[in-house]
Amino acid sequence: MPDRMSPEAALALMPAVREAVRAAAAIALPFFKPGAETSARVWSKAGGSPVTEADVEVDAFLKVRLSELLPEAAWLSEETRDDPVRLEHDLVWIVDPIDGTRAFLSGHRDWSIAVALLSVGQPVLGIVDAPACRHSYEAVAGHGAFRDGAPIRVSSRTTLPGARVTGPKPLFNRLARGVAPGGDAGFERIERIPSLALRVARVADGAIDVGLVSKDARDWDLAGADLILREAGGAVCDLAGRPTLYNRPDPVHGELIAAPAGLIGGIVAALG
């Protein structure tokens, strides 16, 4: 039987989810060594990407805690084998226990714990917690976006020349050429942020004007941060300006844009 969640119900659920994420951060932090290699055990997954015991412990903890909060919701995370039963559910938890694992294991502070709750394919609750940076971002659909409890909004910039841009070099260069063919777009290039969820969250709080995303991002990298950005006045979309869709059979995305709503048309035109 279909289950849906209203924004009001998600708002009521948020304190318990926030507490679960804080407890998850407390599990991860002892393994993190700023500027040095992690103390956690590390191994390689299929495909060669690293995973640490911190990823696994946080994932297991959140699966239990979040499933207790909402037993009717299905589950999709980076560190749990995908169960296609999620496609039959209108409520789905989407979790990245540590987004930016390479940053985590090398001592870079820009990693995060990302959690989203989907209702009928769209996020209604999202948290991106960056424990090593001591910042936490959150949003509930229709109720605004917040960093550390204070409201946030995207940059008020309306033109692309001079914008603060982060993301992969090929997309950055393509955008610059589209904005100023043969010339200088005057972009301020922001150092790449290893956690994709945190990259999108920093667009939401106005620290970055444009975040560019390579292909192959997954639902768990994006869903929570996407809602935070939407509630802050922006969006995550593809290079044609179409909104991001979640909980599909293959939860993989192509190249994406994260930006204030007022810049998306110009970015799409420049990249096209």
Rank of each mutant, 00 (worst) to 15 (best):
M1I: 09
S6Q: 15
P7C: 10
A9W: 04
A10P: 09
M14N: 12
P15Q: 11
E19S: 08
R22N: 14
A24L: 11
A26P: 09
I27Q: 02
E37G: 04
V42T: 14
W43R: 11
A46W: 04
S49V: 15
S49T: 13
D59M: 02
E68L: 08
A73S: 04
R86Q: 03
V92F: 14
I94H: 09
V95D: 08
A103V: 06
H108Q: 14
V115C: 11
P123G: 03
V124G: 03
V128D: 10
V128Q: 06
H135E: 13
A139Y: 11
H143F: 15
A145M: 02
F146W: 15
R153A: 15
S156C: 11
G167Q: 01
A176C: 05
R177V: 00
R202D: 00
D205M: 14
D205G: 07
L212G: 05
S214L: 10
R218A: 04
D221Q: 00
L222M: 01
A235S: 13
C237E: 08
A240F: 08
G241Q: 03
P243I: 03
L245S: 07
R248F: 11
R248M: 09
P249Y: 02
D250P: 00
E255Q: 14
A258S: 14
G262A: 06
G262E: 13
L263R: 00
G266Q: 10
I267G: 09
L271N: 07
